[in-house]
Computed example of a mutant assay.
Amino acid sequence: MVFFWKRAVATALVPLALALGTLLPGGAHAAKAADPCKANAKSATCKATKAKTTAKKPAAKTASKTASKKTVSKASSKATTKKTASKKTAAKTVTKKTASKKRASKKTVASKSKSRKSSIVHRQRAHARAQARASAAALPPPAASVRAEIEALRSTTAYVQDLETSTVLFAKNDNVVRPIASISKLMTALVVVDANQPMDQMLEITDDDVDTLKHTTSRLVVGTRLNRGDMLHLALMSSENRAAHALGRNYPGGMPAFVEAMNRKARALGMSNTHFIEPTGLSSQNVSSPRDLARLLRAASQRPLIHRYSTDDQYEVDVANRTQLFRNTNLLVRKSDWDIKISKTGYINEAGECLVMLARINGRDVAMVLLDSQGKLSRIGDAVRLRRILQSDVAMAML
Rank of each mutant, 00 (worst) to 15 (best):
M237D: 08
M237E: 09
S238Y: 06
S238R: 06
S238Q: 08
S238N: 12
S238T: 15
S238D: 09
S239P: 11
S239A: 15
S239K: 10
S239M: 09
E240I: 06
E240C: 13
E240A: 13
E240F: 05
E240N: 15
E240P: 04
N241Q: 09
N241A: 10
N241E: 13
R242Q: 13
R242V: 06
R242S: 14
R242F: 07
R242E: 14
A243T: 14
A243V: 06
A243C: 13
A243Q: 03
A243S: 08
A244K: 02
A244C: 05
A244G: 04
A244E: 02
A244T: 12
A244D: 03
A244Q: 03
A244I: 05
H245D: 10
H245L: 14
A246M: 01
A246T: 01
A246E: 01
A246Q: 03
A246D: 04
L247C: 10
L247Q: 06
L247N: 05
L247A: 11
L247I: 09
G248T: 03
G248A: 02
G248C: 08
G248H: 11
R249K: 14
R249C: 05
R249Y: 04
R249W: 04
N250S: 14
Y251E: 03
Y251V: 02
Y251W: 08
Y251A: 00
P252I: 02
P252Y: 03
P252Q: 02
P252W: 02
P252K: 00
P252T: 01
P252D: 08
P252H: 01
G253E: 02
G253W: 00
G253M: 01
G254F: 08
G254W: 07
G254Y: 02
G254V: 12
M255N: 00
M255L: 12
M255W: 00
M255Q: 07
M255I: 05
M255G: 10
P256C: 05
P256H: 11
P256A: 06
P256R: 10
P256D: 09
P256L: 06
P256W: 07
P256G: 10
A257F: 01
A257I: 00
A257R: 04
F258Q: 01
F258I: 04
V259K: 02
V259M: 01
V259Y: 01
V259D: 00
E260L: 07
E260V: 05
E260D: 09
E260H: 09
E260T: 11
A261E: 09
A261L: 07
M262V: 13
M262L: 15
M262T: 12
N263T: 10
N263P: 09
N263I: 08
R264W: 12
R264T: 15
R264F: 14
R264M: 14
R264K: 15
R264Y: 13
R264V: 14
R264S: 15
K265F: 11
K265Y: 08
K265A: 06
K265P: 01
A266Q: 00
A266T: 04
A266I: 06
A266P: 08
A266V: 03
R267M: 12
R267H: 14
R267N: 13
R267G: 15
R267A: 15
R267C: 07
A268F: 10
A268P: 07
L269V: 02
L269C: 04
L269D: 11
L269Q: 08
L269N: 03
G270R: 13
G270D: 09
G270W: 11
G270T: 04
M271R: 05
M271H: 05
M271Q: 11
